[in-house]
Design a binder for these strands. Structure first.
Lengths: 211, 211
DNA sequence: ACATGCAGTCAGGAAAAAACTGATTGGGGG
DNA sequence: CCCCCAATCAGTTTTTTCCTGACTGCATGT
């Protein structure tokens, strides 16, 4: 099985490469830190499988998977990610990923996942799978919620560290209204307390931008 | 050279382990995902070197380095981190780290770093070194500030989304004292308001894992 | 036309948190 | 020995949050 790796951190990538190469029947034919380069690599090498981190520079993992599925259908894509938000898992699988491997997982999972891919099966790390089997009520409603327009604006300003008063001024509305928006969002997201909302705001607002 | 690894992500850890074991004269005698367990491992194994991520559960990397330097001076500690903020780099080195290796770095750096450590030299990844050669005067006071011990603990708990009351309980002190610590930090960092502090706390990555 | 529901706007008042002021203790260094 | 800083806390005031409504448009379905 011919394999291409994509992860922004060279050291991590090199480590994963070693792990893969130690497995029988696995041939790592390329690696890259970059989404665009990944597509070029796939074009050149036509690997059987791509193992990719979702957070890639120049082209994020989800888009990369879609491109691969569209232009190089012979190549399967499996996610190898540090994070496991439901939204990401679902987006990846919907885009055509053949598996989702968490870096939180044990090393043996790598072998299981690659074997599964060889058999055209789908592998999901434990702790990831629940994102796909809907019945988890305990899983927070945070994911896959689309907030109304103004609520999103408020959220974005919260993520920038603005106070309620500042937000009110910036948006030209009363502070009371901002409070209402916040309360509605907390309700919709199943969060309790302003700090939890702020945490959520910063996490989701920091998407993609990291120095 | 006997080596212990500490990284919260098993897959990454396993990969790095392979890379280390492929080098001559390196013997990986233990690995863990956890700060407290790291100390126990060091006590049992007395390794020559510990290679650790800074963001560890139960005991963060900086504190772990300090403990190791204090209680097990024969063991050196080298940071292997995904991030490279100046403040973290300086804090690590000040705590007695013998090197700072970025996961953004190339895989060969691992060999260079371990060789350097064997020769009792200090290795810094390119792109990390600048944090130490102070010439860049950052505008904000936010960088290059080392907060006192308890203040850092408070900050870390803030980043984890804990409320003042929760922090007070967790630290076994009065809520009033927590407020004082917060106020001192805002003063020291030139921040105004609790939300700005929280933003800072989350952004500087004192957050360990999802609660 | 009418009810229904949602998004957006706001207020009043109680409750909680934060901010300000000031005070004590215990180490370390000059 | 004295001074400073880290750490601890209380009292008081100010600000923010939280809860309970309430009114307006606008779109939808009946």
């Amino acid at each position: 099985m011919r394999l291409v790796l994509a992860d922004p951190q060279p050291l991590v990538r090199a480590g994963i490469r070693r792990l893969c190469e130690a497995l029988a029947g696995i041939d790592v034919v390329g690696e890259t830190a970059d989404g665009q380069q990944l597509l070029e690599l796939v074009a050149r090498q036509s690997p059987d499988l791509v193992l990719l981190e979702l957070q890639l520079p120049t082209l994020n993992g989800i888009d990369a998977i879609q491109q691969i599925r569209r232009h190089y259908p012979a190549t399967a894509a499996m996610v190898l990610s540090a994070r496991g938000e439901s939204s990401q898992v679902r987006a990846a699988l919907k885009s055509g990923a053949v598996g989702y491997l968490s870096k939180q997982g044990e090393a043996v999972e790598l072998e299981l996942a690659l074997k599964a891919a060889a058999r055209r099966q789908i592998y999901l790390s434990p702790g990831i799978a629940h994102s796909v089997v809907g019945q988890r009520k305990s899983a927070r409603a945070e994911d896959s919620v689309t907030l109304p327009r103004r609520q999103q604006q408020v959220l974005s300003l919260i993520a920038r560290g603005k106070s309620t008063k500042e937000i009110a001024n910036l948006m030209g509305i009363s502070a009371k209204t901002v409070e209402t928006h916040r309360a509605r969002m907390m309700d919709a997201l199943g969060l309790y307390g302003t700090n939890a909302l702020m945490r959520y705001a910063i996490r989701t607002g920091l998407e993609g931008a990291e120095g």
